Simulated assay, not measured.
Amino acid sequence: MQRIEYSAEIAELLGRIRRRPPAGWPWRPGEPVPSWLPVKQSWGWLFAPDGRVLTLVNPRDGIVSLPGGSLEAEDDGDPGAALAREAAEEARAVIGPTHYLGYLYDRVGSANGGHECARVRMAAALRAVGPSAPDPASGRHYRRLLVAPGLAVELLGWGPPGLRQARVAVRSAVTHLGVPGAANELIEELPMEGCEVFPASG
C-alpha cells in the first residue's frame, strides 16, 4: 500500500479537523429522484486526473465538506448548475460536465423546512481553481485539499455509507473521466493563487 504523504502545514490543519455526526440519510445510488421529492441540495465529487478529489476544510471550525450546496432560483432546478455555481463560490473551482450518481433521502427535511427532500450527489472533472477567496454567501475561506476518495470519506466522517457513495463516484469517474481506479495517496493543498488541475482536453 502506498504511504500517505503530506506536509507539516497540512498535518497541522488535519489535526484540527472536527467531524459532524453522521446524518443517516439513506443512499440511493443510480436511482432517479422521484418526481414528488424536491431536490434541495447538490454536492460533488470533483476529480483530478490522478483520481484524487477536492475537499474543502474550514480552518476556523475544522469542518470538512465536498463542494456544493442548496439549489437557488438562478439554477432553474438543475443540480448540475447548482454544483457548478457552488463550487465556483466556495472554492473558485471550474468544473467539467456533471454526472449524476444518486441521491440521499432526507426524511427529516432539514434543508426543506421540515419536509422530506433529496440531496443529490454528482461527479465531475475539476478543471481548475482560481485565486483563493472567501465564499461570498457565507464568508468562509476554505482550504482546498486534493485527497484520495477513501480519505475524503474519513475526513468527512461518513463511515461505511460514505464509502459506498465514494465507490459509485470512483466508478463514474473511471468511466466518464478516465481517472485511475486507485487514486494517488498524496494529500496536497492547491495553491492560493490558483492553478489548472484537469486540462479540458483530458
Rank of each mutant, 00 (worst) to 15 (best):
A48V: 09
T175Y: 15
L177Y: 05
G77I: 02
K40A: 02
G202R: 09
A200P: 11
G51A: 10
M1E: 15
K40N: 02
E188R: 15
L37D: 01
W36P: 10
L46M: 04
A23L: 06
A148E: 11
P22Q: 12
G202Y: 13
S110Q: 07
R119I: 12
A118V: 01
P161S: 06
P131K: 09
A173H: 08
A84S: 12
A84K: 11
A11E: 13
L54D: 09
G109K: 07
P67G: 04
L66V: 05
E193T: 00
A73Q: 04
E74T: 13
S35F: 07
Q2H: 03
A73M: 02
C195E: 14
A93C: 02
I4E: 02
R167N: 04
V147I: 09
A169R: 15
R107D: 04
P49L: 00
A88R: 15
Y6E: 13
G69C: 12
V108N: 15
Y6S: 08
G15L: 07
D50W: 01
A169S: 14
R143G: 03
P34W: 07
P180F: 02
E72K: 09
P29Y: 03
G194H: 06
G62P: 01
P161V: 04
R20H: 04
V94N: 12
D61N: 13
T175M: 12
S132C: 09
R92W: 07
T98H: 01
R171Q: 06
E74Q: 05
Y6M: 15
Q2K: 05
A124R: 00
P180T: 08
V197L: 05
V179P: 02
P97C: 06
A81K: 15
A87P: 06
R60A: 07
L54S: 13
G194T: 07
A123Q: 14
R60D: 14
L163W: 05
R85T: 10
R20S: 10
G157S: 15
I63D: 08
G130Q: 00
L37C: 01
P26R: 11
L177C: 09
A81W: 08
C117N: 01
A87N: 06
L104Q: 14
L145C: 11
A118S: 05
R119S: 13
V64R: 00
G102Q: 06
L83S: 07
L13G: 04
E116F: 09
H176V: 09
D135N: 13
R18N: 10
R52I: 12
A125M: 05
A87E: 06
A152M: 11
L83H: 04
W45K: 04
A118Y: 00
E9S: 14
V33M: 02
R18H: 10
E9P: 06
R164W: 00
C117Y: 02
A11T: 09
V179F: 02
L163D: 09
A137L: 13
L37P: 03
P180C: 07
P38H: 14
G162L: 14
Y6W: 13
M192I: 09
A169D: 11
P136V: 05
R52G: 11
R16L: 11
A123T: 12
A137G: 03
H115S: 08
E90N: 05
G96Y: 09
R164T: 00
F47N: 14
D76I: 00
A93E: 03
